[in-house]
């Protein structure tokens, strides 16, 4: 008897459509997040994450509609992130049917936002999205050598990643979605050093993200300290099926659903 390692596919959604390409032959509409969410649910995904990459206000409305339609058809937890700047945004997403929301840029700018959300809705709804890279040569050093980035990893903040993880937990973050911007897109495996470093300072669940390229990449992330693993492209393109990631974890001795 023990808690299963969660395997979580992530969908980038803009104006109600999946933006990164999806490569499943049997989908009617590979751009429809609801259809893809249903597909992942059927394949055994333990949770779903939508990352709203929409810029416009009208686009955000469409995202609420996608969340609503998904929550009507998919009965596993749904996390929505991207563009959450205020308690009112959280309220709207939860009402639409999201179970958790994730924050990054707005919380870096104004850390009290974490406390405000946790106070109103409880810390279990609040995922801190931690986009981390190693400090580049010439940039100001941080104590851990890792810094927080915003704007999808494009902007360094000079903020020490481990210190921020600790602060965010104190403020009320209930979970950490740890994205390695160094590993992201490489398909060369998770950033194990980073996972271990964040695990060491975290008393909340840590979801590892960035770098998955094959099923065998998943177990080492858990060994390094992750409670859950998240990936996008490697699932969308069918390079690894949810079931294959779980089989690799099971073979390594980790409980899965």
């Amino acid at each position: 008897m023990s808690l299963a390692v969660r395997v979580i596919p992530c969908l980038d959604v803009a104006a109600g459509r999946v933006v990164k390409g999806v490569n499943f032959a049997d989908l009617r509409d590979a751009g429809d997040p609801v259809e893809l969410a249903t597909r992942y649910d059927a394949e055994g995904a333990d949770e779903l994450t939508f990352l709203d990459v929409t810029a416009s206000v009208q686009g955000r409305e469409t995202t609420f509609e996608v969340v609503r339609r998904t929550a009507e058809q998919v009965f596993i937890p749904l996390t929505v992130g991207g563009g959450v700047r205020a308690v009112a945004d959280v309220d709207a997403l939860l009402r639409a049917g999201a179970d958790k929301i994730s924050v990054n840029t707005a919380a870096v700018r104004r850390p009290e936002l974490i406390a405000e959300i946790a106070h109103r809705f409880g810390r279990q709804v609040l995922v801190l999205s931690l986009d981390v890279r190693r400090v580049r040569p010439g940039d100001p050093a941080t104590p851990s050598g890792f810094e927080v980035t915003t704007h999808g990893g494009r902007r360094g903040t000079g903020l020490d990643a481990l210190a921020w993880a600790v602060r965010a937990q104190e403020l009320g973050a209930g979970e950490i979605l740890l994205n390695s911007m160094d590993a992201d897109g490489t398909m060369a495996g998770f950033d194990l050093e980073l996972i271990a470093a964040v695990r060491a300072v975290s008393g909340v669940p840590v979801i590892a993200s960035g770098g998955a390229g094959r099923a065998a990449d998943f177990p080492p992330a858990v060994t390094a300290g992750a409670d859950a693993v998240l990936a996008a492209g490697v699932f969308h393109f069918g390079a690894v099926r949810i079931g294959e990631a779980k089989a690799a974890l099971r073979e390594a001795g980790y409980p899965v659903r």
Partner: peptide, 12 residues
């Protein structure tokens, strides 16, 4: 050691 207890667990 890790809270919240979050995810899929077995029951008896």
């Amino acid at each position: 050691p890790v809270l919240p207890h979050m995810g899929w667990n077995t029951v008896a």
